[in-house]
Design a protein around this nucleic acid. Structure first.
Lengths: 352, 1294
DNA sequence: TTATTGTCTACCGACAATATCAATACGTACATC
DNA sequence: CGTGTACGTATTGATATAAGTAATAGACAATAA
């Protein structure tokens, strides 16, 4: 690590903290290699897009914080909120910030928040408790340039959170209510493979379709987990986004990680609200829409009359955003369509 | 950067993986062949002799050929490979379950055998001979010769049922069976031939001419169940038969017959009638013709239930009997009876003398016997007739909208369904005949069809159609999923119902054997002999396996879904539009990301379900019985005339089944039977007065007390704005779920109540019985599922005893106590409860007089039962002397926290015994209040010390807060579970709070400690039970690895104990493997039940303490039942609530206390321990002892020695094997071997002399694992409480 | 072998996940020695 | 004639599904290192 100090985004003031790796990783994978972080930051190329003086960063689950600190050093934000609630991490960051206070006067503007990054309330409280100044509402036509969200959701159960944050893009609520806020998300590679896949790819699922409709996304980087590069990802995504490959050794825990950039897209949830529930039924089997129709509601065969063959003969995984909008539109025309509540499927467990 | 193409990626990946696999294998082998150090001493002579086979085991195990017999159950008949099933003789022998010390065995390959037997039956009955041979040949590989002969005979019997099977053909079949299947005929086989000679047109004389040996004729004729009654008489007529051919049991009939021989006048036998009896449920004209209009009691009979048409002769007979009995009654009563104003129970109530009642009961019983028979035989026909009737009525009215009448709708579906099923039957038969039928819209492959074809064809298309519709409607009513039912459950249920139908038609066949078509002397005697012979057959028909049921059900349901439509209308801007939507459709629902299949019911159908009368459509087994159930005397029995129920309910627990069967066979269960028979012979009737009130509120459709309202749709929360915060969205989703849940549960509850009430309505005035059976711990449950006295308040209020008992002084008091109890005043002394009733007697009487307006009763804790008591009291007080009132109401005596009572008796805690009323006291004690006080004390003490949370709770702990936790403590509730309970209470009493959980946590701790303090010894026992279960469930049997082929898992010992009445209880918790089965609807997951799969140790441990206690309370109940029965008391129970007439409560209380004392004066836990020590003597425990211990070194040395010898690492199987050999040798006759065995050391034998339980470590870390003989901790000492005091404790049950 | 992570949490009556695809295992036809 | 190879099919095993994971604590099984 001799040349580490020479890296552009490396904050020398924190060097001593990153020499030693953390004892626990709390089920998350993270980057431990400064060079890799630097390359990632290069690839992200965020600097030109933000103005340090107005930029607030919300950084969920920074872990031991190498990437966070380098991102910080790169962008020099007005506020950099770190949210984590694991003992080791809390201790580590508190001492780090203390050290910074005495060395740089914390010009890095780190603020550590000892709350659960999983909880929605944590974020609203940032504003409530004035840890952050109110974020300006901006247009959804261009990237929000005063707020950046970074999060590490690489745990085994974190996929749900990614799915939910995608839903937030569709509803334009939560932090997404401020505008087209960029999220840099570390997620399990298997999650990225599913959620980022394009129509027709084997792993394409309902959330991938939602992502397609409601967000703009880009695969920034992938961990080198197998010897076949990009194995498991939709090749079209690899070709389109040209993600960088991060060396296996650069990770703590494992390299089954993808780094994805996500922001709210042009559609919102009402685009297909009427059939959102029914989509799960479509994705159950590999049968065509024509075959699936009777399963969504009694008498839904009727829709055959309203849809072109080319869509009817598609499988759920092959739907494009256009297709799904057309299906939604057709459904709207159906006189016997059940109400949204009636299509609310609830499992037995929930009934007890 | 990454110009990658997909297929390339995948190819690379594949190549890489293959590489990995290869290297893994290499590594593995190099480890395996690595011998230990070379400086090890060689084992002793004997030891090395035993080690020899181990070397081979190693070699054969790696390339062990899995016998393809294991695959039988996952193959259709097309894929059977009889030649591949080679099973060693030793692997065909019966094996033991958990313990060799119990004489309870299992048959290896039982599932496979049963599967094959079912197919054998089917192919034989349908005369597919080639297939029959194929199956029999497969069977020949799995079973011994004796069984093979038995199965072959079974097959032949089925074959000869076909009248076109001439004797020669039968003989040819037998010949082929011998040739291909190693079948060996016996006398029974010959009897079958004989039957075919008589029945299917052979020359009897020629037959006997060839058979000169009298003795063998005798042997053949002994098989009366094969030959049948009618045929036997024909044989008697044969000139070749003389007395020397007649076996002993037939001698008398024979002589009798020959003596009175007369020309056979051909008559219709009643039993023959049964088979094809055409019962038109609604056609009463026939009856009217037969019964003169003024015949006494015609209307009485007409009153009968379920639209049954009574047998005219019997009806006439019955009514004339009634006429005779009531002759002495007043003119007015007789008129009432004659006018049909009185139902059967009303009449019974009017009778004045015991003699009248006895005669009446006898007459009714005889009449009901016939009705019961009709109900059972009619089965599903009743449903069809009802549908048809309603359909035709609707047509007559010109009413084309079938939606209005569910039944008419069903008939429409039924008619449309039949052709589909018929078509499928054709396809199945074609397949079985190897005919190729091309059908363009037949998407089912031959392979798939082959799985269900042999079974589907067993039930006719029309019956299958009815069953399918009925099951789907029934399941839907059973609630659960929102607007539908689990598809997996539905397909299996339909399959099961089909199987059941097939079985009951088989039973009818058996009946046929008993029929005699001529009026001859001795015919009834002959029938009895045949019946006895049939009953003595031990073999049972194997059940269809679940995969088969599922497949059969799947086919039928998919047909129904295809044709069942419902008409829908909708108003649109262009006027009303109409469409036909499927009534049932299949879909998926998601639960925690897992999906499951659902059959949804169209809302239009769903709406009508809770208002439809189903009583005609309920299977007879699901109804209460009209006659006394057959008394229990073996494992199967106890129920209706034509159906069998197992003594113990089992969900996939072959071991439980085997143990109970064995006990039944040994005759150990007589006392259990006795108790159950008392429960079964308690006669009930429906409380019409209460029923009418319920009915009134039910029909109003509003929510009232426990009656849920009729709801049109769920009350959904208001819509959310699209940009609502995620947490708001979450709450909204929760609220929606809650709304759906409430709606759904209200609807399914209404469906459920509808069933109950409809049945109750049908049974008003009838005398009914509930046959009972047991769960695996011995607790008794009524078999009829819908309506029984175990239900909630409303259901319980519907029941009265059939018999009445004059109250007397005490009875009146107890009746009052009953009122207080159900009203909620159940914690006061008896005198206060009586006072309560006396104080409120006016209210009660008014409630009874005008229940709709005077609502005092509705405020009771159990309002419906309160109303029921009100009616009773009002009637009593209408008499000049209420004590003279004849009461029919069951009065309850409930154990106060019965589980704790048993624990307290076992543990002998004095304070505990006081608190659950084991100790006499002038006030009833309430354990919940007491615990809450203990908690209070603790909290207050902490508060003194300035504990914040304690100060908050100071003097605020109510009974309610601790109640659930105290109750569930008996069931082994954990801290987390209790936390959840108390949290609910805290939220209710103190409001929700941000960090309420800190408070909850504190309080839970206090509650737990308080309970432990109060029931200290009881808890030691609970712990002891848990520890014993833990050791058992984690033990290893000495016989592990004995059978190489049949997969017995390492930890496979279940906790087994015997109740004081001799019922063996086997905890059925195992980890069952699953596999999925493709059906036409969806794939269905099916578990493979096994008595040898790995034990679910966690459940075994957690379940044992409560299960043991429940087995004791069940024992107590059965003992009490038996004694009450002997004392002539009517008795009923709901586990720990015992019921009898008010007048008999004192007597019952005495009995139940006596029995409790009798039960607990033995040291039950010590007995249990002794039983465990005996049963698990061949079990060993894996213990972790310190690495440094001397024993560790010894065992390591032995293992090293062995490892060198066998050139591989020593496994646990090897250790057990060596020990087994050593122990075998010790028992040897050869003194040399015994001597050697004494000198021989095994890793287990060296443990002898140590007590490793003393120095073993709980954790595996830094420890060495050894095998040690299982030991059980000493039983904790009892406290001071003397259980005999219970005899004087008036509040023990109250 | 040891350390970490994940699972489960009150008994019985009572009742349960499926669809798909890749990889392996198995079987058969065919070719070539 | 046997053997090896290629190809086709049945079986097995892994993975995805949805999308708040409440929160508590302690034992135990499974998995990773």
């Amino acid at each position: 690590m001799s040349q580490v100090a020479n890296l552009r985004s490396y904050n020398p003031a924190l060097k001593k903290f990153f020499d030693k790796l953390p004892r626990f990783n709390y089920g998350k994978s993270q980057l431990k290699n400064p060079e890799a972080c630097q390359l990632l930051l290069d690839k992200l190329n965020l600097k030109p897009q933000y103005n340090s003086a107005n930029l607030d960063i919300i950084d969920a689950t920074p872990g031991f914080g190498l990437f966070s600190s380098m991102l910080n050093h790169e962008l020099r934000p007005r506020n950099h909120i770190l949210i984590d609630c694991h003992d080791e991490t809390i201790k580590r960051w508190n001492t780090q910030i203390k050290t910074l206070h005495s060395t740089t006067g914390n010009k890095e503007n780190f603020k550590f928040v000892d709350r659960d990054p999983f909880s929605w309330a944590t974020y609203s409280n940032l504003y409530k408790h004035e840890l952050l100044p109110p974020t300006k509402q901006q247009s959804y036509d261009k990237m929000h340039d005063e707020l950046l969200v970074v999060a590490n959701w690489t745990g085994t159960k974190d996929e749900a959170i990614i799915a939910q944050w995608i839903k937030c893009c569709s509803h334009r609520n939560w932090l997404m209510k401020f505008g087209k806020v960029r999220m840099i998300l570390f997620m399990p590679s298997s999650t990225a493979m599913k959620f980022l896949s394009e129509p027709g790819f084997r792993k394409r699922n309902r959330t991938a379709l939602r992502r397609d409709l409601y967000t703009d996304s880009k695969l920034i980087a992938i961990g080198e987990e197998s010897d076949v590069l990009g194995e498991g990802y939709d090749p079209r995504v690899l070709v389109r986004d040209q993600p960088m490959v991060i060396d296996k050794a650069a990770f703590i825990r494992n390299a089954a990680v993808a780094i994805v950039e996500l922001s709210p897209g042009k559609h919102t949830s009402d685009a297909i609200a009427n059939i959102d529930h029914l989509l799960s039924t479509f994705f159950v089997t590999g049968a065509t829409l024509r075959e699936q129709l009777p399963k969504i509601a009694a008498g839904a065969e009727y829709l055959v009359k309203l849809l072109p063959d080319e869509i009817l003969d598609k499988k759920a995984g092959e739907f494009t955003t256009d297709d799904i909008l057309k299906i939604s539109h057709a459904y709207e025309q159906w006189p016997f369509k059940p109400s949204v509540e009636e299509t609310f499927d609830i499992g037995e467990e929930a009934i007890r | 950067m990454l110009g990658l193409n997909r297929s390339l990626l995948q190819k690379c990946a594949r190549a890489r993986l293959q590489l990995k696999a290869k290297s893994a294998i290499r590594e593995h082998t190099s480890i395996a062949t690595n011998p230990g150090s070379s400086t090890i001493p060689t084992p002793s002579l004997f030891a090395s002799r035993f080690l020899q086979p181990l070397k081979e085991i190693n070699n054969t195990r790696d390339n062990l050929v899995v016998n393809s017999a294991n695959k039988i159950t996952s193959s259709s008949y097309l894929d059977l490979l009889p030649d591949a099933y080679e099973i060693e003789e030793s692997d065909r022998e019966n094996k033991h379950y958990t313990s060799k010390t119990d004489d309870v065995t299992r048959k290896p390959y039982e599932r496979e055998i049963n599967y094959l037997r079912n197919m054998l039956e089917s192919f034989s009955a349908e005369s597919f001979f080639e297939r029959t041979f194929q199956i029999l040949k497969s069977l020949s590989k799995l079973v011994n010769q004796e069984e093979l002969t038995q199965f072959g005979n079974r097959s032949l019997e089925a074959i000869t049922r076909d009248p076109s099977m001439k004797p020669e053909a039968v003989k040819k079949v037998i010949k082929q069976m011998e040739e291909f299947c190693k079948f060996k005929p016996d006398e029974r086989t010959e009897a079958i031939v004989l039957k075919s000679v008589v029945q299917n047109g052979g020359d009897l004389n020629a037959y006997f001419a060839n058979l000169k040996d009298r003795r063998s004729i005798k042997k053949i004729l002994r098989n009366t169940d094969v030959i049948g009654a009618d045929n036997m008489f024909q044989i008697f007529d044969s000139k070749d038969i003389d007395i020397s051919c007649i076996p002993g049991e037939l001698m008398e009939v024979y002589k009798n017959y020959k003596l009175n021989q007369q020309d056979g006048e051909v008559v219709e036998d009643t039993i023959k009638l049964q088979q094809n009896i055409e019962i038109n449920a609604l056609d009463k004209e026939n009856l009217d013709e037969l019964l003169p209009v003024d015949s006494f009691g015609l209307k009485v009979v007409r009153h009968s239930l379920l639209g049954l048409k009574p047998n005219p002769e019997l009806a006439v007979h019955f009514t004339s009997e009634i006429e005779e009995i009531v002759a002495d009654l007043g003119e007015e009563t007789r008129k009432e009876i004659k006018d049909g104003k009185l139902n059967y129970h009303d009449i019974y109530k009017r009778l004045q003398t015991d003699e009248q009642r006895t005669t009446y009961d006898e007459a009714l019983e005889a009449f009901n016997m016939e009705r019961q028979r009709q109900i059972e035989i009619r089965g599903i026909e009743g449903a069809k007739e009802k549908w048809k009737h309603d359909f035709e009525e609707a047509q007559k009215r010109g009413d084309l909208n079938l939606n209005k009448s569910m039944n008419a709708q069903c008939y429409d579906w039924y008619q449309k369904l039949i052709p589909l099923i018929e078509k499928e039957h054709e396809l199945c038969k074609a397949l079985l005949n190897d005919e190729k039928v091309e059908s363009k819209d037949d998407i089912t492959t031959a392979k798939e069809r082959a799985f269900y074809a042999p079974f589907l064809i067993k039930v006719g298309a029309d019956k299958a159609a009815v069953i399918t519709i009925l099951e789907l409607l029934k399941l839907n009513a059973s609630g659960g999923t929102y607007g539908g039912m689990r598809a997996a459950k539905a397909v299996e249920s339909v399959g099961r119902a089909i199987e059941q139908e097939f079985r009951s038609s088989n039973l009818a066949n058996q009946e046929y054997k008993m029929s005699v078509s001529r009026k001859v002397a001795g015919s009834s005697q002959m029938k009895n002999i045949v019946r006895k012979s049939i009953d003595s057959l031990e073999e049972e028909d194997p059940e269809w396996d679940r995969a088969t049921r599922t497949r059969v059900g799947g086919v039928l349901i998919s047909f129904l879904m295809a044709i069942a439509k419902v008409k829908v209308r909708k108003q649109t801007s262009n006027g009303p539009i109409e469409d036909y939507h499927p009534a049932f459709y299949h879909g998926m629902q998601f639960l925690g990301g897992q999906r499951f299949g659902v059959i949804k019911v169209h809302n239009e159908i769903f709406k009508h379900l809770s208002g439809t009368s189903f009583i005609e459509t309920i299977q007879p087994q699901s109804l209460p019985m009209l006659v006394k159930p057959r008394p229990w005397e073996s494992f199967y029995g106890g129920t209706g005339l034509y159906s069998k129920s197992p003594l113990v309910r089992m969900k996939d627990a072959p071991e439980t089944e085997a143990y109970v069967k064995a006990a039944a066979k040994r005759g150990n269960l007589q006392e259990v039977f006795d108790g159950l028979n008392v429960l079964g012979t308690t006669a009930w009737t429906i409380n019409k007065k209460v029923f009418d009130v319920i009915s009134h509120y039910w029909n109003k459709g509003d929510e009232f007390l426990t009656i849920p309202p009729v709801l049109e749709s769920a009350k959904f929360p208001p819509k959310l704005s699209p940009d609502a915060d995620p947490s708001e969205r979450f709450d909204h989703a929760k609220a929606t779920i809650k709304a759906v849940r409430e709606f759904s549960s209200s609807r399914s509850q209404r469906c459920d109540y509808n069933y109950k009430l409809e049945i109750a309505r049908g049974f008003i005035g009838e005398k009914l019985y509930f046959p009972h059976n047991l769960d695996f711990r011995g607790r008794a449950y009524p078999i009829s599922p819908h309506l029984n006295h175990l239900g909630g308040d409303l259901t319980r209020s519907l029941f009265l005893f059939w018999e009445g008992k004059e109250l007397g002084e005490r009875g009146l008091e107890w009746l009052k106590v009953q009122l207080a109890n159900v009203y909620g005043v159940d914690k006061a002394p008896i005198s206060e409860r009586i006072q309560f009733a006396t104080d409120h007697i006016e209210e009660a009487i008014k409630s009874a007089k005008d229940p709709l307006n005077h609502k005092w009763w509705t405020k009771a804790e159990k309002p419906w039962q309160a109303l029921s008591v009100c009616f009773e009291l009002a009637e009593a007080y209408a008499l000049p002397d209420p004590t003279k009132f004849v009461s029919y109401l069951p009065v309850h005596q409930d154990g106060t926290c019965n589980g704790l009572q048993h624990y307290a008796a076992l543990g002998g805690d004095i304070e505990g015994a006081n608190q659950v009323n084991l100790n006499p006291s002038d006030r009833p004690q309430d354990v919940y209040t007491f615990v809450s006080k203990l908690v209070q004390n603790r909290v207050n003490a902490d508060a003194e010390k300035g504990h914040d949370i304690a100060i908050f709770f100071k003097d605020k702990i109510k009974r309610k807060v601790v109640k659930q936790t105290v109750m569930t403590n008996v069931y082994g509730v954990t801290f987390v579970g209790a936390l959840a309970q108390i949290k609910k209470q805290v939220a209710q009493h103190f409001g929700e709070d941000q960090d309420g959980h800190i408070y909850t946590k504190y309080l839970t701790k206090q509650v737990f400690e308080s309970i432990r303090e109060l029931f200290e010894n009881a808890h030691l026992i609970q712990d002891w039970l848990g520890e014993a279960a833990k050791r058992i469930s984690k033990s290893v049997s000495l016989d592990y690895g004995e059978t190489s082929n049949n997969q017995v898992e390492l930890h496979s010992s279940a906790v087994i104990w015997t109740t004081p009445l001799g019922l063996p209880c086997v905890q059925p918790y195992r980890v069952n493997k699953h596999h999925s089965v493709k059906t036409s609807v969806q794939d269905v997951l099916i578990s493979n039940p096994s008595g040898t799969s790995t034990i679910d140790s966690r459940k075994q441990q957690a379940g044992f303490p409560p299960n043991f206690i429940h087995s004791l309370d069940a024992t107590h109940m059965l003992m009490t039942a038996t004694n009450c029965g002997e004392s002539g008391l009517q008795f009923a129970s709901v586990h720990d609530s015992f019921w009898t007439h008010a007048a008999n409560i004192d007597a019952m209380n005495e009995i139940l206390r006596e029995q409790f004392v009798r039960l607990h004066t033995q040291n039950l836990v010590q007995i249990l321990r002794d039983e465990f020590v005996e049963r698990y003597q061949r079990s060993y425990q894996i213990l972790h002892i310190p690495l440094t211990h001397e024993l560790t070194h010894k065992i390591k040395a032995i293992k090293k020695q062995w490892a060198t010898s066998i050139k591989r690492a020593v496994t646990i199987t090897d250790e057990l094997y060596m020990e087994r050999k050593r122990l075998e040798m010790l028992q040897s006759n050869n003194p040399e071997e015994v001597e050697a065995a004494k000198r021989m050391e095994t890793t287990i034998s060296v443990v002898d002399g140590y007590n490793p339980y003393e120095f073993c470590q709980p954790i595996k870390r830094k420890a060495y694992d050894i095998l040690a003989p299982i030991q059980f901790p000493e039983v904790p000492p009892k406290g001071q409480f003397d259980v005999r005091k219970v005899k004087d404790s008036h509040y023990f049950f109250s």
